[in-house]
């Protein structure tokens, strides 16, 4: 499955996670409820399910995996996040998958019997765990359970904290 598009490769000389401005005409997602017209690669859980799922990538920039719940504010488009290097690219991949799994987690709390979504949750959970391990192996621990902590000296302080420069 490919979670990237050409946007990941533009603006390569810019600062971390540049956001595009909001001057473009807005795409009104609200008119496309229950349809994957905005999301040709979106996974549709089942014909009778009330949810219309976006891809992890589309969901992450919107803050919403559920196309049928998305409500745009005025003409503001979601900011497009641009990965400028391998570290950001690998991090975004993890953050997108973790977010998709989290969205399905909240949904499944209410609908534990939705077999399709349980399966999809586990797909995203597995991929997110793999992406996290791959990131930590290359760039240092995000979690205190990381294998990367089996080193000397103590590695937990290697990555900056999120509010500081270089943090994620």
């Amino acid at each position: 499955m490919n979670y990237y598009d050409e946007r990941d490769n533009v603006n390569s000389n810019m600062m971390p996670f540049d956001r595009q401005t909001f001057s473009q005409p807005a795409v009104n997602m609200n008119q496309n409820n229950n349809s994957n017209i905005n999301n040709p690669n979106g996974i549709q859980p089942s014909n009778n399910s009330p949810v219309a799922l976006l891809t992890p990538q589309e969901a992450f920039i919107r803050g919403n995996l559920f196309g049928n719940l998305y409500q745009q504010y005025k003409n503001y488009k979601p900011a497009v996040l641009t990965a400028n290097n391998e570290q950001q690219r690998m991090y975004l991949n993890y953050a997108q998958l973790a977010f998709a799994a989290h969205e399905l987690n909240l949904y499944l709390d209410n609908y534990p019997d939705d077999r399709t979504i349980v399966r999809l949750f586990n797909d995203y959970r597995t991929m997110a765990n793999q992406a996290l391990r791959a990131y930590e192996e290359k760039f240092g621990p995000i979690t205190i359970t990381s294998e990367q902590l089996n080193q000397f000296p103590w590695m937990w302080e290697q990555l900056n904290f999120p509010w500081d420069e270089g943090g994620i």
Binding site: F17, P141, I142
Partner: peptide, 14 residues
């Protein structure tokens, strides 16, 4: 709870 050293969505205000 366990902490992840990252934000749920990136913030980089310059």
């Amino acid at each position: 709870w366990s902490y992840q050293k990252r934000l749920q969505y990136p913030v980089n205000i310059k």
